[in-house]
Design a protein around this nucleic acid. Structure first.
Lengths: 140, 140
DNA sequence: AGAAATTTGTCCGTATGTATC
DNA sequence: AGATACATACGGACAAATTTC
């Protein structure tokens, strides 16, 4: 079998399909995904490709994998706009760069950065807090 | 050849070695890393293993790979010296809630949260750093 | 402009190691 | 101990993007 992946690679297509199942609730939060072996059979793909697909979901924090156990659907599907009141507030503010941010932005520790904070709530309960950091004035 | 990986897997050891070369300046910022083919010969490892090692560096934002071109060392500063617990960037990571996060999540200050950091970069230059915080155990 | 070489991307099949049940 | 499931590693083949000639 050749390797035709015009446009979308197989592993991404498979990741999409699995993402659908998770976000739709077909695979409920906390539940185990089918084993790599089963997915291999279902999608008629090699195990490496299946693992690549799962890696995409892991990167997206949609699943968590445990050695010898399996891969679980994350307890936190869809962070996006919940139809019911998942509104996010923003609050620009200047903060001092911690060592890691300083290294990333190539500035001195303590340099002022702009912090943008948004909050994802569901039914009034804070689900996630997102902080975005940028330079006051981009260098380079 | 068997696959003994007591403790450290091969690909992580190779990633460590390459990380050394980058952080020491042996591979200066912006420079191309040796091709996968060359690394395969040097480390006597399969291409898959080399690619896995490079994936680790990519995850740590130490390199950027471009299709058909090669893998570049990131333009990040060698400031990453002070290693006072300052990890380059482990992916999902547990951190202690600061007062503001603690208030938002309704937990005690210092409670462990999961931090996920992603970096938006253009041409190797960091544009923005996004940190997302969530509870370890979502308490509905 | 076009062809070839180079380099990374995707995919397969197999084998073995390690963790969990 | 045995079975199950994920992790690591190898080798081969072809696709796609880039560079070189």
């Amino acid at each position: 079998m050749p390797t035709p992946h015009y446009g979308q690679p197989r592993y991404r297509a498979i990741a999409e399909e699995l993402r659908e199942r998770i976000e739709s609730g077909a695979i409920p939060p906390g539940a185990l995904l089918p084993t790599e072996s089963i997915l291999t059979a279902e999608f008629r793909a090699s195990r490496g490709t299946i693992r690549q697909a799962i890696a995409v979901l892991r990167e997206a924090a949609l699943v968590v994998t445990e050695h010898g156990r399996g891969t679980y659907a994350s307890l936190r599907p869809k962070v996006g706009r919940a139809v019911t009141g998942g509104r996010a507030e923003a609050r620009p503010q200047e903060v001092a760069a911690d060592p890691e941010l300083a290294a990333l932005f190539s500035v001195e520790v303590g340099t002022a950065l702009v912090e943008h904070q948004s909050i994802d709530r569901r039914d009034g309960v804070v689900q996630a807090v997102v902080r975005t950091y940028r330079l006051l004035r981009p260098n380079q």
